[in-house]
Design a protein around this nucleic acid. Structure first.
Length: 297
DNA sequence: AATTCTGACAACCGCATGTGA
DNA sequence: TTCACATGCGGTTGTCAGAAT
């Protein structure tokens, strides 16, 4: 019988959106909220497919989008997440507040791929291109993952080994969504067959105090990601440390970016009026804080 | 000045998945 | 359990601006 089309294509506009269409869409969503994309175009008076409206809103019109260039920190975070998750752009986007999966995907294809290639790293495998064992079937014999040092030139590619073994139990204590666990576990297993499969990455979780101490924002203390994950506004702000109005500036660690803040893995540094402190028990997961992969102890 | 090339990114398309009747 | 529908996701394409020739 076949799949019914998502909309009546004969009577819909395609291509670039006009200012008027944007205004109509924004006004409608402000009044009625997101959702019901199939019926939205008609209700909003738009000659567009519901999918097109959804894409336009999520990728361009959403007020919480962070426009502008990617920072070096975001670059490195994308690279590291991609090495773990592969082309799971929505999952990667979930860790980069204000960025969309489409935006990250485009950025990867246009910038980061070339950047990695220039470093002598295969963007698909995250292994050195001149590595003789750089094949999908190659597996190391210990519980580790070999990745390229991100701070070295393509002329002298070194590899370092990272062990996840000691962190997995603690990380597992912060699980929130079982579906996410299973998906992420599956992805990690697929890409890193030699990895301890207890490694899990949890989605961002709600602050126990419900943002009472972490955010000066009132109504927008949390927001819904496209895939339905709430991301705390605290971290949305923290990622861009220079933009905070408060005198308290927080540098987010990777553990927190993965939604396990307040844990002993947290190594966030907090600067209060110029005085920097850090979590003494912090664990710099994947050495993100330093921006480079670290060697196994 | 005209043409071609290239990079960037918005948008589209098809398939997968979730959900409710 | 099955089916239809709504939504989400990832790959791909189209378009445009700026650079190069």
């Amino acid at each position: 019988m076949g799949r019914s089309p998502c909309c009546e294509k004969a009577h819909t506009n395609k291509g670039a959106w006009t200012k008027e269409e944007d205004d109509r869409l924004i006004a409608y969503i402000r009044a009625h909220g997101e959702g019901c994309w199939r019926s939205l175009p008609k209700a909003a008076g738009l000659l567009r497919c519901g999918k097109s409206c959804r894409l336009r809103w999520i990728n361009y019109l959403r007020p919480d989008l962070k426009r502008g260039n990617f920072t070096e920190e975001e670059d490195e975070l994308i690279i590291k997440l991609h090495s773990l998750l592969g082309n799971k752009w929505s999952l990667i986007a979930g860790r980069l507040p204000g960025r969309t999966d489409n935006e990250i995907k485009n950025y990867w294809n246009t910038h980061i791929r070339r950047k990695l290639i220039n470093r002598g790293i295969d963007p698909a495998t995250h292994r050195p291109v001149n590595d003789n064992n750089n094949s999908p079937n190659h597996q190391t014999t210990n519980t580790s993952q070999t990745v390229a040092n991100s701070n070295i030139s393509s002329l002298e590619v070194k590899t370092t080994t990272i062990s996840f073994a000691n962190t997995t139990t603690a990380l597992a204590h912060h699980l929130v969504k079982e579906e996410f666990e299973e998906e992420t576990k599956h992805v990690v297993q697929e890409r890193c067959p030699d990895l301890n499969l207890e490694l899990r990455i949890s989605p961002p979780h709600y602050h126990h105090q419900n943002n009472s101490s972490s955010s000066s924002s009132s109504s927008s203390s949390s927001y819904m990601q496209p895939q339905g994950q709430h991301v705390s506004y605290h971290h949305k702000q923290s990622l861009k440390t220079g933009r905070r109005n408060s005198s308290v500036v927080t540098s987010i660690c990777f553990a927190c970016s993965l939604g396990i803040e307040n844990s002993k893995e947290c190594s966030c540094t907090t600067s209060v009026n110029g005085t920097t402190t850090s979590n003494s028990t912090g664990y710099d997961f994947l050495a993100l804080k330093a921006g480079v992969w670290t060697t196994e102890a």
